[in-house]
Amino acid sequence: MMISEEQIIAGCIAGKRHERNMLYKKYASKMHGVCLRYTINKAEAEDILMEGFMKIYSNIKTFRNDGSFEGWLKRIIINTAITHYRKNNKYHFIDIEQIELSEMEDSQEENDIEEMQFSKEEMLNVIQQLPEGYKMVFNLFVFENYSHKEIAEMLEISENTSKTQLLKARKWLRNKLQDLSIKKFAMLKL
């Protein structure tokens, strides 16, 4: 029997297990994909996913129909990931305001990334290997489209720090992808 999203939401508000399970089955895989980007491995991602869904079930009454439900779920998951990150990595960010951003930008090499072909899993793996601070900023800027100001507020860092972290992340990713492509090429030759 097809149940509409409103019915699922109403059932979750009423605390019914059947509707909660339906909500989980509908959105768990997508939200898990989001969690994987913010964590090192699957286990950690599942922890955040479970914590996130518990918050969703507890706070679903506060959903006001003023936007997409999926977007609302995603925000909760991301906030859970940020909270999880802040608990585990308190002193990761180093404020390096003295380094001028323009210098950093000029120093980066231009690499032709278009030619590189990578699978989704490979790219996910690369992101997961990003250092924590870079990962958070990169995800929030690129995927969630937050501004540096907003990222700074969320992660309790300065705006400059957010910008430098993003640049460093990009550089790191570029290098990683290059290494990966070299390895792939070498494997093909063999």
Binding site: S29, G33, E46, M123
Partner: peptide, 16 residues
């Protein structure tokens, strides 16, 4: 670079 990652992983889903 951003677009490459975004296009690959924005809608990425994996069953827990």
């Amino acid at each position: 670079l951003d677009d490459m990652f975004k296009s690959a992983l924005e809608d990425y889903s994996q069953e827990p």
